[in-house]
Write a protein that binds this DNA or RNA. Structure first.
Ligand SMILES: [Mn+2]
Ligand SMILES: [Mn+2]
Ligand SMILES: [Zn+2]
Ligand SMILES: [Zn+2]
Lengths: 139, 139
DNA sequence: CGGCAATTTAGAATCCCTCTAAGTTATTGA
DNA sequence: TCAATAACTTAGAGGGATTCTAAATTGCCG
């Protein structure tokens, strides 16, 4: 019964990052965070909201995903041109990408070691290192 | 005078991969391959062609880039949603990405070591491993 | 409660990119 | 050399994802 996860609810999550807990953001936060780590596109999430009878526009889904990302609640993963995935796992980690199905799967950060990386050019600093392992049909 | 680079010209390059050496493809091949490794978008390359007074449509630039990629003369790099880069370096290598300017810079393949990669799921095989080091303004 | 900034939204707009269908061109072999 | 033919090019329409705009709504604070 001890509460080791101090901010588990959608409402607390929003409060913590300074976003007003509106009906739309609460519903989207629940869809995103209430059942384990996920990788979703804006269209997918909007579809889930509609299916759950949550009235929210696609524009708001895009706005919310970007606000959550800016607030550190999500990270954005780019694996193919013309489609962004939003990832509820904000830990340092990498991805398998199934080219055939478009599915992303986490690879825990400590299962990939990137070594011998050159120094970043002067005046710049590393924001993030993305490793994408592209998978195809096997033998 | 010994010819150690048997296929240096645009014409030979096209013949080798079985693409007809048309005026448009020859011009684009020269723009792409005649001055070291490059990372270009379709729009950029089309702009260069127009600037060089080469009459070619944007559709043909897209077609050509994809044909060159399918033929192994180029590789496609995805670093941001909605825009593809085509890379004249087809060796195994990785990239610095300057988020501010949209510039890509090669990191030689032997300067990055990816270790402890988990087995790919059964029935799949690794097609490619992309490492993208995203850079921002530094301290 | 007001007042007001933050938020939402429909619809238009934009950006990349692909498709279509009609004209053009490179190749080939008689 | 010269059709015949397949490959290629292209303008413009079409499409998908995303962003923008401007007006309506809503949460928050005093
Ligand atoms: Mn985005
Ligand atoms: Mn492509
Ligand atoms: Zn992930
Ligand atoms: Zn490169």
């Amino acid at each position: 019964m001890s509460d080791l996860r101090p901010y588990s609810g959608a409402l607390e999550r929003l409060r913590r990052v300074g976003l007003r807990p509106t009906r739309q953001r609460l519903a989207l936060a629940r869809l995103l965070f209430d059942k384990g780590h996920r990788h979703v596109t804006a269209e997918q999430l909007h579809g889930e909201a509609v299916a759950a009878a949550v009235r929210v526009s696609l524009a708001t889904v895009y706005n919310t995903l970007h606000q959550f990302t800016a607030a550190g609640l999500l990270s954005e993963v780019v694996v193919e041109p013309g489609r962004s995935y939003f990832d509820t796992n904000t830990d340092d980690h990498h991805h398998f990408y199934f080219e055939k199905t478009g599915v992303l799967q986490d690879i825990p950060g400590d299962h990939v070691v990137v070594k011998q990386l050159p120094e970043p050019p002067p005046g710049t600093e590393i924001r993030r290192v993305d490793v994408i392992v592209r998978l195809g049909a096997g033998t």
